[in-house]
Design a protein around this nucleic acid. Structure first.
Lengths: 321, 321
DNA sequence: CTGAAAGCGCTTACAG
DNA sequence: CTGAAAGCGCTTACAG
């Protein structure tokens, strides 16, 4: 066990009350005593236990919001986080980003023990077991960029986004159209893809091909090149901007007249002239932060209110790519 | 005061031990009792006090590192944070980002009470009073991107960076050279500027003008335009990339043959083709995270070791701008 | 100026 | 299955 205030008291020959006063810099302590105590504290490597201190002094920090990310967080999430941060900062809340670690089970046990008032869960669903852990501790949470009808969630309309992408390519007179996705199943991709296919259908078009890969610019460049060479492709829709960058590069290199559209509209994308489906990361971050703070502050209400359910609209951004 | 386990116990007619078992989902509780207790807990709006729980159960989370940002955090810091996050995540630590708020004094009092093991202070110095607060609680900290010989600090060599910028412009045959800075004093800017002037001197050049402005692309665009028109300028060094973007735009618009160089090398800058002085944000973040974890884990050592003092080198990136 | 004691809100054997 | 009690490491009046 770590060294406690009691150890310091015994070792220095004073009472724990006095030690406490010294450590906290209260007045009314003889200079000599102070020095002695400080010295033994240092010698023993004493470090006050903040938990105990908080409990004893009745200071309960309720002003920390936790967030948990998917195991592979891509850039879009960092833009969301920056929105969350601004808003929380505005409201005087701290932001606690949990390590997601390798072992989900243990991590969740760990999270549940930490001191925070509400949790923002980014981009992916929790297991029932995990939700149970949170609920057992009466911890409120909101899904961000993930939709669950049973739970609080603020999300984007991915179906619509997919449809917008389809209409973009259709309007640019593309006939042979492909989709390049991520090799990880996700709600976002499923819906985006479904919307995309429907959108194509409505225009009387049909998807030619779909390939799922890692998020890696080189990989995306290679695959795009391959696809362009093998088939007579007019347009490609990428699951996200980060994938599309490689495509953009392939397009330029090969000088092919092909249409490329991404998804997210990361900050960088505007500089690159990439057409894309814009999801306002900052806004959803701010919105999520606002809502979790509200939820946390409304503690009292024991009523089972309807879960929060907010859908944000993506927008087509045509940069001519 | 909030409702406690005692309140629930009394209201439900059971002992606090039983309530505790129910809340924590332990077995050996009659189903009927469980339901009753859960109901009154809900009715009363009971929320377990995590602090008390931690203390009682002997669980002391030592795996959280705090960070505090400057009041106006610009993008460079977010790139540092992403480095910090990766490394901490690797090590199983959480990241607690403190709100910096408006009132520095209160904020620091508040921070000192939070539960974290070590602090990373980004980009600016703490007041003596603030350091005192930390030290009184035996809280270790490291400055990141700020240099203080008396304290642990990991930082970039801004003098050298300034010098590199000077040599860049000199080699591109610029003779009339200006500096556009930020209208806030900072160690970084002071050193960068000094290095820059020295660098110019060595090449037999002299600074023509210096203007300090807000970080705002429009503003920077306007000022650059003005400077180009008024004086016969061949090269401009901007305090940071974010300022340089406006300059880049002005240069393109006016079609003037002028050299532009920024500082930081934000991710975006490579896409924009901006020449700049690269500081590896991710690296310093990772480095800082590693070091603070080491420091925190070496708790025991009561010896007064030398403060950590690490200097990282910036690098010139010539993208022809 | 200093010590003894109560108390912060929980958990956890120990009896029953 | 449940209650009473000790204890987690501190703070804070209250005496002295």
């Amino acid at each position: 066990m770590a060294v406690t205030i009691k150890d310091v008291a015994e070792a220095s020959g004073f009472g724990i009350g006095t030690v406490s006063r010294v450590i906290n810099g209260k007045e009314y302590v003889k200079e000599e005593t102070r020095e002695k105590i400080l010295l033994t504290a240092k010698r023993l490597g004493y470090r006050p236990n903040k938990i105990a201190k908080m409990l004893a002094s009745g200071y309960f920090s309720d002003s920390t919001i936790g967030i948990i990310l998917p195991e592979i967080a891509h850039r879009f999430f960092f833009e969301i986080i920056s929105g969350i941060y601004s808003e929380l900062n505005e409201q005087g809340y701290n932001l606690l980003i949990f390590n997601i670690g390798k072992n989900r089970e243990q991590v969740f046990e760990h999270i549940a023990r930490e001191n925070f008032s509400g949790l923002l869960v980014l981009g992916y669903p929790m297991a029932e077991r995990e939700k149970k852990i949170l609920r057992a501790r009466f911890t409120r949470f909101i899904y961000l960029d993930y939709m669950d009808r049973e739970e609080n969630s603020i999300f984007f309309d991915n179906q619509k986004g997919g449809r917008l992408a389809a209409s973009y390519l259709a309007e640019k007179d593309c006939r042979n159209i492909c989709f390049i996705g991520r090799n990880i199943d996700s709600q976002q991709q499923a819906e985006r893809f479904e919307g995309f296919c429907r959108g194509l259908n409505e225009k009387g078009l049909k998807l030619k091909d779909r390939i799922d890969i890692e998020i890696d610019e080189e990989e995306s460049y290679r695959v795009t090149e391959e696809i362009i060479k093998k088939r007579d492709v007019h347009g490609i829709f990428y699951f996200c901007d980060e994938l599309a960058y490689g495509g953009l590069r392939a397009k330029e290199k090969l000088g092919k007249d092909i249409r490329i559209i991404g998804y997210d509209d990361l900050i960088i994308s505007s500089f690159m002239g990439l057409s894309t489906i814009r999801q306002d990361a900052r806004s959803i971050g701010i919105r999520g932060a606002k809502k979790i703070v509200e939820l946390v502050q409304s503690k009292g209400s024991s009523e089972e209110e309807h879960p929060l359910f907010e859908c944000m609209e993506p927008v087509l951004v045509d940069r001519g790519s």
